[in-house]
Amino acid sequence: MALQDKYKELIDTAQTSGVSNLQVAEQDGVLHINGTAPSGDVKDKLWDIYGKIDPNFLTGDVVMDIQVATAVSGAKLKVVTESSNLNIRKGPGTDQPIVGKAAHGEIVTLISKMNEQWWLIRTDGGAEGYAYAQYLQPV
């Protein structure tokens, strides 16, 4: 319970921000927080609060997976690589051949989610394939 006290602000915010399927459970000294945020802003807010309570996330007492509800088929996604192009691959995996690229900041369309890591996307230029979800942000 001590962890739930330490991260009370984070849990409270998740509860009051409309995070659905919210699961907060403590296991082996780690607080697991899972849920689906109604928007990317809410996800960002939760991560900011987490970073405020545990600067640079170094303590390792939280594992938080917040998905974004608006990331559904047909949604527009922004490529949020640091600066480089995002590889679009034939299949879900970095061992798969690259079939196209999306530029940093480009807006692409989500076709479907293979899993939480690999999303099938299409660029306006017509390239279609799998890209790593961490570099795609719903707009």
């Binding site: 899972n34 640079n56 996330f57 594992v63 997976d65 939480e116 890591q117 961490q134």
Partner: peptide, 19 residues
Amino acid sequence: WKTLKMALDALHPKKVDAK
């Protein structure tokens, strides 16, 4: 590191130890 931590947490590990 924040980007990486988000991606690692999304894999549902038992713990992410970054000490």
